Amino acid sequence: MSTRQALRLAVISAGLSVPSSTRLLADRLTEAVRAELTEAGREVEVRVVEVRDIAVDIAKNFASGFPSPDLSDAIETVTSADGLIAVTPVFTASYSGLFKSFFDVIDNDALTGKPVLTGATGGTARHSLALEYALRPLFAYLRAVVVPTAVYAASGDWGGKGDPLTDTLPTRINRAGRELADLLRTLPGGGTRADDDTDVVPFTEQLATLRPE
């Protein structure tokens, strides 16, 4: 008899301030994914990596070639997870240098096939395309599986004043959360013990779950 393990969800927040709108968006996305999986009867274990807290460790790793225990733990959190939520502030029309540096110390093959939901925050909606021309290519290079909906939150998106353009943030968060949850539910062996006899789901069928009906 097989025993289902909890799905492991890693959350990367590259915000620099406390509190941080980047962390707020990461938390909202996490709750959306958790709600979808809970409704489907799946347990989720969430581990959050605040990249700000290991910034010095990342810099020392570049100089020495050896990760500190805290950095090793953060890398293990990401590479061993069933799925990943990665959120960065946008600086100068792209992801932050700290966000990129963290993924630079992870092996290029470590995220192969891993479902990823990307998000970003910024002061103006003009930076929203950074998700498509910066973050999506980054994770495509790492051969991760990026869900279709990427979520950008500008300063004006928080609060809601009846504007049909800015008041869509909760809708986008829920849609992205559903897409990542759909992939996690259909992972071959995801969240199950190694002796489980679960049939392998072809990758094309996994992607089909994300298509609108």
Rank of each mutant, 00 (worst) to 15 (best):
M1G: 13
S2P: 15
T3Q: 14
V11P: 11
V11L: 09
T22L: 09
R23P: 00
L24T: 15
R28L: 14
V33R: 00
L37M: 11
E39G: 15
R42F: 13
V49R: 00
R52D: 05
A55S: 15
F66V: 14
F66K: 14
P67D: 07
P69C: 00
D73P: 00
A74W: 02
A74S: 10
A81D: 03
G83P: 07
T88G: 07
F91V: 13
A93W: 13
A93G: 02
A93N: 11
S94E: 09
S94L: 08
S101V: 07
F103E: 01
V105L: 08
D107W: 07
D109L: 04
L117I: 04
G122E: 06
G123E: 08
G123M: 08
T124N: 11
A125I: 11
A125C: 02
A125V: 12
H127M: 09
A134P: 01
T149Y: 05
A150P: 12
V151F: 10
V151Q: 01
A154D: 15
G156H: 06
G156L: 03
D157C: 12
D157Y: 09
G160H: 05
D167W: 04
I173W: 03
R175K: 14
A176Y: 01
L180R: 03
A181M: 08
G189N: 09
G189H: 03
G190R: 13
G190Q: 12
A194I: 14
P202K: 09
E205N: 10
L207T: 11
A208V: 07
P212S: 14
